[in-house]
Amino acid sequence: MVDMKDPHIPVVGVVTDIRIDTPDVKTFRVVTPDGKKAFEHKPGQCAMLSIPGVGEAMFSITSSPTNTEFMEFSIKKCGCVTEWLHSMEVGQQITIRGPYGNAFPVDTAFVGKDMLFIAGGIGLAPLRSVINYCRHYRDRYGKIDIVYGSRSMEDLVDYKEIIEEWSNDAGVNVHLTIDREQPEWTGHVGFVPNYVKELGFTTDKIAILCGPPIMIKFTLAGLQEIGFDKTQVYTTMELRMKCGVGKCGRCNIGAKYVCKDGPVFRCDEVDELPDEY
């Protein structure tokens, strides 16, 4: 029995790079002590990071599975674990276990489709792995549109990557927006749900939503207004997860366990769940 691997026991990870994205978001690069990726994952899956003595917390893996060298996590400072993570230096060891949850159906339902990614704030983190996966296998998917908004310019996560890489890809359109005017900002100003409606997308796309609940609510309504069906819209709820292995009894919405049946849900599936999110 004791030679079996237990899902609660993590492995050691080393933080090899820390990038400051915004005033409260940092992106951490993690590998095992011998320099490898800790485990393979699929786009949309999560991993449990922990600092012994502080606690464990679940994070979306922001790097794409196609990255064979390391994993990345974009983490916003909002609790004890994240606070600790933000205070660490390169070379610090942490523990990591996973991957947890289902993934976006990038190899099935999404194939051959035009993709519309809509994110707000730190909500870009779970989508980044999908976006980069789609960019890696560019020929499998149609046009890619990315609508991304944040409070201010400084709060746009992965701004450098968006401008330098995503915007330059053929067939990838990036639409950025910030909530309030800023002197040095020349792009769009306004909230994401309105911007999506203004942009007026064709309805033959798959839409993937991630952001604050209020943004999701209004964007979903907006998408439906312009003709999207709920079966075309996906979202992720990894915020609710705790143990990751479907046992601790916290993350369920009705009979669905977010850590096993989710975190990725199609919006029509969400409708069938009781109103508890």
Binding site: V11, P52, T95
Partner: peptide, 16 residues
Amino acid sequence: FKMSGKNIEIIDTRSE
């Protein structure tokens, strides 16, 4: 867990 500097050692305490 045993911690020393930036390093972490995970000790599996399971026994039959």
